[in-house]
Amino acid sequence: MEVLLGITGKDFCIVAASKAAMRGASILKANDDKTRTLNKNTLMAFSGEPGDTVQFAEYIQANIQLYSMRNSSDLSPFEVSSFVRAELAKSLRSRSPYTVNLLLGGYDSIKQKPELYWIDYLASSAPVPYAAHGYAQYYCLSILDKHHHPDISFEQGMKILRMCTDELKRRLPIDFKGVNVKIIDKDGIREEPYSDDKQVYAP
């Protein structure tokens, strides 16, 4: 029941990840951060097999940071996505593959465009305007299909995100403890305050 959501707009990318850390039916933690900052303008959100997720994400994070240090320049979101996909594809045919699904949100400061990559544990990767992983796909993609537009403003993006999280609260059988929301735009990565206290009732 982990939720990963990504939405791009005119000049920003929103990445939201559920705050619940679960083991079986128990919630162990209600303020879990399922994202890692890779460089100044790329953020990776992850879900999947506990253990694999953080291990893989921090391995990627370390390597992307190492690249930035060695070359005094950041990889673009597309370049990061190629590296991540290649690592995951390598892992897929290894003795013990990582079972990790990813959303890569970024802002390409040369093209001056936000980018979002959907990558699953099989290392299928696609650039997308909006994306979700897990059950959230079934509830949110239809909402995003209906309301998303490439030129939406940040406010409209947040409004659509709210529609998505409300729907998830309405439909998911387990409380995912709300979402952490991170914004990637030309100024870098920041956390967006997001209130989760509003009650949403199933119809």
Binding site: D120, A126, Q137, Y138
Partner: peptide
């Protein structure tokens, strides 16, 4: 199309 079983993920693959 890029899909996961019956779910379509991307229409730009």
């Amino acid at each position: 199309r890029l899909g996961l079983q019956s779910l379509t993920v991307s229409n730009n693959f």
